[in-house]
Simulated scan of single mutants.
Amino acid sequence: MIDTREVVNLLVPFPEIDSVLAQRRHMYICISKDGSTKKFSKCQSFKPYMLLPNYTDVKCSIIENSNYERNPFSRKTMIDCDKVFKTINYSISRDKLTTIRPDVCKDLHSKIVENVAKQESQLVPLLTPELIALNERIV
């Protein structure tokens, strides 16, 4: 079972299971857990063009430098606070946890939760069969 603040590497069927984005593994931070429901924020490698005014893919984000005392990121990373991915009734194997560090620090977690709440982020439900189809060890 994955707990709040833990970070997993997953393939996620977003926007569609066949999309290019769904074929690339990303880190997802578990920002909340309530019974069998978990919510995650997506992380991706930071690229300088993300700071340009015409970049509109993500409006609210946190840019986090690599710092193993705070996070498991090996390079500068953007945490997307516009979208929250929701799973219900399944477990993600602990094999999916990041290896450098399994979680983010409490301070970073609090900043993510605060930004997500302020933003009224889009909730994206993830379907278990699609997640299982993409990831070899879920459950």
Rank of each mutant, 00 (worst) to 15 (best):
Q44D: 00
S45Q: 12
S45M: 12
S45D: 15
F46C: 03
K47P: 00
K47I: 01
Y49G: 05
Y49M: 06
M50D: 15
M50K: 15
L51E: 13
L51N: 15
P53K: 00
P53S: 03
N54W: 15
Y55N: 07
Y55W: 07
Y55H: 14
T56A: 07
T56L: 04
V58E: 12
V58D: 10
K59P: 04
K59A: 05
S61D: 15
S61K: 15
I62A: 01
N65V: 10
S66E: 09
N67Y: 12
N67W: 08
Y68I: 12
Y68V: 03
Y68M: 07
E69C: 10
N71H: 05
N71C: 03
N71K: 00
N71A: 10
N71L: 06
N71E: 03
P72S: 12
P72D: 15
P72M: 13
P72K: 07
K76Y: 04
T77M: 11
M78A: 11
M78D: 06
I79L: 13
I79S: 07
D80M: 02
C81E: 14
C81F: 14
C81R: 12
C81I: 14
C81V: 09
D82K: 02
D82N: 09
D82L: 03
K83F: 13
V84T: 05
V84R: 00
F85S: 04
F85P: 08
K86Q: 12
T87C: 03
T87L: 04
I88F: 10
I88Q: 13
I88S: 12
Y90A: 03
Y90W: 10
Y90D: 06
Y90L: 12
S91D: 04
I92T: 14
I92W: 08
R94L: 09
K96F: 02
L97H: 11
L97W: 10
L97V: 08
T98Y: 06
T98D: 06
T98F: 09
T98H: 09
T99V: 12
T99I: 05
T99F: 04
T99Q: 08
T99L: 09
I100V: 14
I100Y: 10
R101G: 01
P102I: 14
P102W: 11
D103R: 00
V104F: 01
C105M: 13
C105L: 08
C105A: 13
L108N: 06
H109I: 00
H109M: 07
H109E: 00
S110R: 06
K111H: 10
K111G: 03
I112K: 01
I112L: 05
V113S: 09
V113F: 09
V113L: 06
V113R: 05
E114K: 14
N115E: 12
N115L: 11
V116D: 01
V116F: 02
V116G: 00
K118S: 14
Q119N: 15
Q119D: 11
Q119V: 14
S121K: 02
S121N: 06
S121F: 04
Q122A: 10
L123K: 08
L123Y: 02
L123A: 01
L123Q: 01
L123W: 00
V124Q: 02
V124Y: 02
V124F: 05
V124K: 02
V124M: 05
P125I: 02
P125L: 08
P125E: 03
L126E: 08
L126N: 08
L127A: 05
T128L: 14
L131N: 00
I132C: 10
A133H: 08
A133V: 04
A133G: 10
L134T: 01
L134D: 04
N135R: 01
N135T: 11
